[in-house]
Simulated assay, not measured.
Amino acid sequence: MSQQNTELEGIGKLRGGSLFMILSVLLAAIGILVIISAGVLGGMFSAASGNVGGAIAAGIGLLAGIAIVILIGAIIGLVGILRIRSGFSILKSLGRDVGIGETGTTLYLVGLIIIIIGALLTFVLIGVPILILGEIIALIGGILIGIGFYRVGELYNEGLVKIGGILIIIPIDILNFVGFILAYVGLGRVRPLPTPTQQPSVPQVYQVGQGTIRNNGYAYVTLYSSTPATIISAKIEGANIMSSAINPTVLQIGNNEVTIFFGNVQSLAPNTTYIITLTINIGGNIINISTAVVYQP
């Protein structure tokens, strides 16, 4: 699978997880609203009809149905968190700076487990602090998840995802609900980042420092080569003096101390800088490079 396809998979996981979170919050809200409404209407009906037993039975049946709805919402939310965790993990593996979101999902899941344990132990005093601890851990996890979504929006330059991440950070259910909606819509617009292409390295040869040339006809230059290369010839520009010997002719990778013999250089002016043009063979490519030397008799 190519990197772009993998990146699309990660983005898709985040988007799918956001949809599950939207449904989870929606089902939980519907359950709570129905419970409140049922309590009010049930009380009014009991007061009007005097049939207390029937109202209680109806209320119990209604609560059982709503509990199932809330349970389904919780399961959907759990699936959503797991998908969001998978999305952050995929993007993190591609070098995207969203690891904080993956950490957030881990804390959120740990918090949920502790909350469930605390809820089961509420009939004894120890259950309450466990429940509170789970709520705190889940709260921190939710904040980190929101930061993760914000970073995704920042990374892919998608404003809706950034705003959604900010709303997810705020521990208010209605804002989280809107935040996941914005994240879902924004993630649908996200496209993978361009994959950097590996440019072939260009062989280089260049002078290090400044060279000198003496009245005995010898010039000394330091050349850096990024790859093995061969010096074919050398010429002093302006004086039109060609080299008669070069040592070494084969350049190794790194710095090379090169000595060039030109013979009679009495026509050169003392303390003057001259350009020596070197003709070099690099991997079958013939290039010319210029080196600067000072004539010091």
Results as ranks from 00 to 15, higher is better:
residue 242 M to G: 01
residue 164 G to T: 02
residue 252 Q to I: 01
residue 103 T to P: 06
residue 279 T to M: 13
residue 89 S to R: 07
residue 17 G to A: 05
residue 95 G to V: 06
residue 158 E to H: 10
residue 159 G to M: 12
residue 18 S to F: 09
residue 115 I to W: 02
residue 211 G to P: 04
residue 107 L to G: 01
residue 192 P to E: 07
residue 56 I to T: 09
residue 212 T to K: 03
residue 115 I to C: 00
residue 234 A to D: 00
residue 112 L to A: 08
residue 291 T to Q: 13
residue 285 N to H: 10
residue 26 L to Q: 05
residue 167 L to S: 01
residue 6 T to H: 08
residue 228 P to V: 06
residue 277 T to F: 15
residue 31 G to S: 10
residue 268 L to A: 08
residue 23 L to W: 15
residue 10 G to C: 04
residue 211 G to L: 05
residue 31 G to T: 06
residue 197 T to S: 12
residue 71 L to M: 12
residue 32 I to C: 07
residue 136 I to C: 06
residue 198 Q to G: 14
residue 195 T to R: 05
residue 198 Q to P: 11
residue 45 F to S: 14
residue 6 T to I: 12
residue 49 S to P: 06
residue 216 N to D: 15
residue 296 Q to I: 11
residue 170 I to G: 02
residue 83 R to S: 05
residue 34 V to C: 08
residue 127 G to N: 03
residue 231 I to G: 02
residue 113 I to A: 10
residue 2 S to F: 09
residue 101 G to Y: 01
residue 84 I to C: 02
residue 120 L to G: 11
residue 160 L to T: 11
residue 159 G to H: 13
residue 95 G to R: 07
residue 61 G to N: 07
residue 269 A to I: 14
residue 241 I to C: 00
residue 227 T to V: 09
residue 29 A to G: 10
residue 258 V to I: 04
residue 33 L to A: 07
residue 154 E to I: 04
residue 281 N to R: 09
residue 273 T to K: 13
residue 179 G to M: 13
residue 216 N to H: 13
residue 155 L to A: 14
residue 48 A to K: 10
residue 157 N to E: 13
residue 96 R to W: 05
residue 39 G to H: 01
residue 54 G to L: 12
residue 92 K to Y: 10
residue 153 G to V: 07
residue 122 T to K: 15
